[in-house]
Design a protein around this nucleic acid. Structure first.
Length: 353
DNA sequence: ACCTGTTTAGTGCATA
DNA sequence: TATGCACTAAACAGGT
């Protein structure tokens, strides 16, 4: 599996999704391409957003300069989850952290949370590309960690975060499903097996362990593997795996502890080089991805500060403006004062740009 | 009680 | 047209 730029296949993807005209001229909306992805036509999304038609077309002037802050982002839940995980230093997040990431980044998902969060949970469970990592006894808390399957490959190698080219299927899980279907006719039996550390998870850890024999802590293993191997999972260069600063009310000491065990840069480079000898050099990737200005580009979703850190230059003001037009919050990861807190303590007129 | 996770079912859209 | 993917709803069970 070679590395493929998420941007190189974008045009064909966009064409296939019939998004070119809509995206380029008026930004995405909850109508058209987004709802056509799935769900039910005419059924409003989580935010019950006002139809763009009600906002424009009357008078016919400046139909393109308006706020789509509460329009449904053109990303599937799978890609949103992937973004969240990829954007975290430890490459694994709890469910609530995934929720928070999405809400921080997309105002649309701050409403009707029950609906889309159920879908998120369903996506995590249903898709083999997401792997549940049990908490260790020394890290008690609610819920497990979720990470990306190291063999899930580049699900979005066509650069389109709306729809994967092909659903990733874990052969072992698939086999388990078929065997449990055939051997245990009672769904309750299968449910019993589903609790506690999965056999699959253990195998997963074993696989990661073999890739990182020097590291013994399973959580550190995942941190290693996800950082290096997972970096190409979605066609994202490792440079984009920047530190997603958690809101201050979300303390994640384990993330920082994990990172102290190794030198991520060296590790990632080594693993990537070993697994993907044909990868572009770092600086080349940097230029390629820094140059992209596509509204679906993952780089546009990243906090401006991180991008500035990453590329070693100040954030692009125009880019920030564009992101604002699309409803992305470039400061989403700064903390409560700038994201979730701000949203809930300001009037709709101020949250809309 | 609430959250988390699993599973099933139904629907619409895109693609081969 | 068949198939696969994505979205939504809902039921259920276990954990905190």
């Amino acid at each position: 599996m070679g590395y493929s730029s998420p941007m190189t296949g974008m045009s064909s993807c966009m064409s296939s999704m019939r998004l070119e005209s809509t995206m380029s001229s008026m930004g995405y909306s909850n109508l058209g391409p987004v709802t056509s992805l799935g769900g039910r036509p005419g059924e409003p999304g989580p935010g019950e957003p006002v139809s763009p038609n009600s906002l424009q077309r009357r008078g016919g002037e400046k139909p393109y300069r308006r706020s789509y802050t509460h329009a449904k982002p053109p990303y599937s839940y799978i890609s949103l989850i992937t973004m969240a995980i990829q954007n975290c230093p430890a490459k694994m997040l709890t469910l609530s952290e995934i929720y928070q990431f999405i809400m921080d980044l997309f105002p649309f998902y701050r409403q009707n949370q029950q609906r889309w969060q159920n879908s998120i949970r369903h996506s995590l469970s249903f898709n083999d590309c997401f792997v549940k990592v049990p908490r260790t006894p020394d890290k008690p808390g609610k819920g497990s960690f979720w990470t990306l399957h190291p063999e899930s490959g580049n699900m979005f190698e066509n650069g389109c975060y709306l729809r994967r080219q092909k659903r990733f299927k874990d052969e072992k899980k698939e086999q388990q499903r078929t065997t449990t279907k055939s051997t245990s006719p009672h769904p309750a039996d299968a449910k019993k097996e589903g609790h506690g550390p999965h056999v699959h998870d253990k195998e997963h850890l074993g696989m990661l362990s073999s890739m990182h024999p020097k590291v013994e802590d399973p959580m550190t293993l995942l941190s290693h593997a996800a950082a290096g191997v997972g970096a190409d999972l979605c066609g994202l260069p490792q440079q984009l795996q920047h530190h997603h600063q958690q809101p201050q009310h979300h303390q994640q000491p384990q993330h920082h502890q994990l990172q102290q065990h190794h030198q991520p840069q060296d590790d990632m480079a080594a693993v990537m080089a070993a697994r993907h000898p044909n990868l572009l050099p770092d600086y080349q990737l940097k230029q390629e991805y820094a140059a992209t200005s596509h509204p679906f580009s993952i780089t546009r979703l990243l906090p401006a500060e991180s991008k500035a850190d990453f590329y070693g230059k100040p954030p692009d003001l125009k880019l920030q403006y564009d992101m604002a037009q699309y409803g992305y919050n470039p400061h989403a990861s700064l903390g409560p004062a700038d994201s979730y807190y701000h949203y809930h303590h300001s009037s709709p007129s101020t949250t809309a740009l």
